[in-house]
Design a binder for these strands. Sequence first.
DNA 1: TACAGTAGTGAACATTCGTTCAGTCGTGGA
DNA 2: TCCACGACTGAACGAATGTTCACTACTGTA
Lengths: 199, 199
Amino acid sequence: MSAANPERDADYLGRLRDYYAENRRIPSFQRIAELMGFASKAAASKLMDRLSNAGFFERAPDDDAWIPGERFFERPLADTAVRAGAPDMIESSQGQLFLVDRYLVRQPSRTVMVPVKGDSMIDAGIHDGDIVVVVRTRAANAGDFVVAIVDNEFTLKELAMEKGKFVLKPHNLAYPIIRPQGELEIFGVVTGLVRRYRD
Amino acid sequence: MSAANPERDADYLGRLRDYYAENRRIPSFQRIAELMGFASKAAASKLMDRLSNAGFFERAPDDDAWIPGERFFERPLADTAVRAGAPDMIESSQGQLFLVDRYLVRQPSRTVMVPVKGDSMIDAGIHDGDIVVVVRTRAANAGDFVVAIVDNEFTLKELAMEKGKFVLKPHNLAYPIIRPQGELEIFGVVTGLVRRYRD
DNA sequence: TACAGTAGTGAACATTCGTTCAGTCGTGGA
DNA sequence: TCCACGACTGAACGAATGTTCACTACTGTA
């Protein structure tokens, strides 16, 4: 072959990502060789050296096994200005890269994913089956979407102010505004949303 | 030891989770034995049999390596003074980079994130500023949400069938149905959606 | 045209891996 | 008290693992 060839490695990286998505582990050198069509494990070893130098893989702190690096989970982010043309890129030549988890989760230790049930927020584009990203806090402001605890149940509503008191406002005309007597317990504030469409 | 001892296995599972959180991989039998204080690998093997029967681990589809099972990421959430009626929530444990990503992305090498502009799909709960997960493919079915290329621009619409021809249907009454003359170029199919609220 | 740098080859090596199996130990039920 | 069962031991085995090294093939540059 030849001098450094980013395209080829980008293709290899793609296959490793696909393998990882399916098997949730990084294959052995032997299997990498099979995947890529190498005839020797040494080639796989060198490939991993290159990819780890680029930040896609790391060594496990415990033993010397491979684990995914941060960039391993980056996805290409289409620039709307960009025309068709496959975004196969290893170095983000122009297309940006996007980390889903980093985008959604700022404080992992205080973040909880909560599945949405019901359609009381459907007019706000929050559907049954969606998963909302919730940061656990009691400090919420009017206008926030919050997960509150009402009658021992979790409820997702907009926190609103009515006559100086907090109320829970659904985004669906078929549902009534909840005016809690006594104290309103806030579980957390919605900071994101994830939806998966059927495959 | 004695007959089945759930407590002991719960403790073992805890250590395996800790190891996984740190190393992002399931240790070998040898290392499991060290972790748990076993003197033989066979004990580790049997432990994994028990835990996999309980749904905490699975075998990788490819080879016979262990991967985390469904219940592996499940959290007791007993520590947060939870009450009855708690929704089943997924707590993103420390630096769990790949939870959301794994949920949304099945074929990394063919997956692109595309920012949404405009409100032509607002009645389907897709807002301006959302980011959709798109799998690049030309094979789309009627009913899919697709990113198509119309007049050199990306457009997100529902692919629909009208009189035997494909059309692009917005989900907003203010927008017209797009009936492409000639060929309709599909960029990809929407398989997921990500939204972030103010921060 | 010659050279340097890079990707991949092919074989060797010690190490670690998972599996198997006979056997030990302790507890709960009969 | 006895016994069955499940957790764990300890050693053996072949298969798979990562590493090393000399080597070939190719490309871009001087």
